[in-house]
């Protein structure tokens, strides 16, 4: 490899090309449906306990933390609205994506990295399978589609935990809580929040796959792939979040 001026730019360019390859290969048959479903199961369903617990605790803690301050202003009735907005707009997507990056991004990076290092990817190619389709496309698609679902379920659990949290300090009925939550919500809150999680999921899957797929030889390469996958995808999640807030602001949805 010749020297390039900026390793970050070179990496970005390579990753963009990787994403382009994903789109090209993903659209062309043949489609690896059974493997895609298996990845959805592994990536989505098996992350549910972790993401669910995180979401539940997030909702509970947010409620209990904001309670004293809100009570000081006599605005306890605003807690459901405030907590739900916080969770649905920002905390749910971000926390879920970060947890997801930690769990899935690293596992994809390590798995593909070790497959690369032990020539399993070559073996796949030799046995007549396009490893990019079989390994990368299925995983990236699975993360793209599963993260929004996980985020929604985490949001739901967080709101339920918030309801429980409010009930530890006072009494609220589920109906009132729901009405309070809905009164503060608009499509402009829900849709961008859901939409951006698709991009988060895509970024996590893509970066994990890229790092694993291009892992260096040796066991060190595997660890490095897993590690950088998590670091880079966490960073990219925040960058995308910044971008998302700018775009929703431009569209007047804030």
């Amino acid at each position: 490899m010749s020297l390039s001026d900026s390793p970050i730019l070179a990496e970005t360019g390579a990753m963009t090309r990787f994403a382009g390859r994903f789109l090209r290969e993903g659209l062309r048959p043949r489609y690896e449906l059974p493997e895609f479903l298996r990845q959805c199961y592994v990536i989505g369903y098996q992350s549910l306990p972790l993401v669910g617990i995180t979401g539940f605790i997030m909702g509970l803690v947010l409620t209990l933390q904001s309670h004293p301050t809100m009570a000081q202003f006599g605005a306890e009735s605003w807690i459901p609205t405030m907590v739900s907005l916080t969770i649905i707009r920002e905390m749910g997507p971000i926390i879920t994506a970060l947890i997801f990056a930690g769990k899935i991004g690293s596992s994809i990076g390590a798995e593909l990295g070790s497959m690369r290092v032990t020539e399993q990817i070559d073996a796949m190619e030799v046995s007549g399978t396009n490893p990019f389709k079989y390994l990368v496309v299925t995983r990236v698609l699975a993360t793209t589609l599963m993260l929004p679902l996980l985020t929604i379920l985490a949001d739901a659990l967080a709101l339920y935990a918030s309801y429980l949290g409010i009930n530890t300090k006072g009494v609220t009925t589920l109906a009132l809580f729901t009405n309070n939550v809905l009164s503060g919500l608009t499509f402009g809150d829900v849709l961008p929040a859901v939409l951006k999680t698709f991009f988060f999921g895509f970024a996590i899957g893509l970066i994990g796959c890229y790092k694993g797929y291009h892992a260096n030889k040796g066991t060190e390469g595997v660890g490095q792939a897993a590690n950088t996958a998590v670091v880079v995808s966490s960073l990219v999640i925040f960058l995308l979040d910044l971008l998302a807030v700018q775009i929703t602001g431009l569209l007047g949805l804030i």
Binding site: L37, C40, Y41, G44, Y45, L48, P148, L149, L150, I152, L153
Partner: peptide, 8 residues
């Protein structure tokens, strides 16, 4: 997986 997707 189907259950999970339906729930979400």
């Amino acid at each position: 997986l189907g259950l999970f997707v339906m729930a979400g």
